[in-house]
């Protein structure tokens, strides 16, 4: 049974799945409110924000880089949408303005990603550095444009998108799951996805095989920027306002979620499904601790400890396999 599951899903998904079961078991014993619709409802509402940003982080990490500008790219994109709505009457703005604003938001997010990707690809500067500079730039730009304040006053349907649901499924969750599916297809079946893994393992060998690696890198970061814009729009709808710095604390959590999901920190390996599992585990941990009376800060600490524990277990597991193999 285990062997069959392992062959079907891979050791990574199986291991994380077991963790998921463990977390659910522990918390359902610890709190009788854990296994309730209300709790899972709140998880479903919280998951998309972190989840979309993590998807934005995933592509660059798979390609052997990192995008430290995800949160501020999301903010700037949301700002774009907010201005379009305000320019079209604020609370009275129509749905057309929302669509136009969303498209412009996507364009802005994509442009930020494009610039990073082009700099990474053509200057060969380290992606951590490039995206860090972009992050500082976007944060400054956003603070300059908003003077550090909130922007709010949107039409009612914006909040409805953030809090509404279709057939009982929260709208943000639907957006998130659609994006997960998109990423799954992108990475599993598309040319660019294939190149992303290859570039992440060895960019020079990929170039020698006739792949335009510069274009591939530029596209990878552009897509990351587009996903940031989606995250920004969803966050705006949830909070019904935009402030530069919204979701700032998520930045390193997205990286943590990727590593937890078994993504190779050097790039080249990692699957959307296991990252999704990791995200669900993180949210369940946080909601479970919340039910037990802890706050978000303790959850953050537990997330960190959880990542360390998983990495130590992976290390021990590898050692054990090696010893067993050498023993026979």
């Amino acid at each position: 049974m285990m062997a069959w599951l392992k062959a079907r899903l891979g050791a990574e998904v199986l291991g994380l799945g077991l963790f998921l079961v463990l977390v659910v078991l522990v918390f359902s014993f610890a709190s009788d409110r854990f296994l309730t619709a209300a709790n899972f409802g709140s998880v479903a509402v919280q998951l998309p924000e972190l989840g979309l940003l993590t998807l934005a982080m995933l592509l660059p990490i798979l390609s052997g880089g990192l995008n430290l500008a995800v949160t501020y790219t999301a903010n700037i994109s949301a700002l774009t949408l907010a201005w379009v709505l305000q320019a079209n009457g604020g609370p009275e703005a129509g749905f057309g303005a929302f669509v136009l604003g969303s498209l412009l938001a996507l364009a802005v997010g994509g442009a930020a990603g494009f610039v990073m990707g082009a700099v990474v690809a053509y200057s060969r500067a380290h992606p951590i550095l490039v995206s860090l500079a972009m992050m500082i730039f976007l944060r400054g730009l956003g603070e300059y444009l908003t003077r550090g304040g909130d922007i709010s006053g949107f039409p009612d349907f914006v909040a409805a998108i953030g809090h509404g649901s279709i057939l009982g499924v929260p709208a943000p969750l639907i957006v998130f799951l659609a994006c997960v599916l998109l990423w799954q297809i992108l990475l599993g079946r598309s040319r660019l996805g294939f190149f992303t893994y290859m570039v992440g393992s060895n960019i020079e060998a990929t170039r020698y095989s006739g792949v335009n690696t510069k274009r591939a890198l530029t596209l990878i970061y552009t897509l990351s920027g587009l996903m940031c814009a989606v995250a920004g729009i969803v966050m705006m709808a949830r909070f019904n306002s935009v402030r530069v710095g919204h979701g700032e604390a998520y930045l390193l959590i997205t990286v943590l979620a990727c590593f937890l999901g078994g993504v190779d920190p050097f790039g080249g390996f990692g699957r959307v499904t296991s990252v999704l599992l990791a995200l669900v585990i993180l949210q369940l941990l946080s909601s479970g601790l919340n039910l037990l009376g802890a706050n978000q800060h303790l959850s953050t600490a537990v997330w960190g400890l959880f990542l360390i524990a998983v990495m130590v277990l992976r290390f021990g597991w590898k050692r054990w396999i090696e010893m067993r193999r050498n023993g026979t």
Binding site: H297, A301, L305
Partner: peptide
């Protein structure tokens, strides 16, 4: 990078808690 992102969250989370 994995270690220090984890300890970043542990240090900060515990401190704030």
């Amino acid at each position: 990078i994995v270690v220090t992102i984890a300890t970043f969250n542990v240090f900060f989370g515990l401190l704030m808690f």
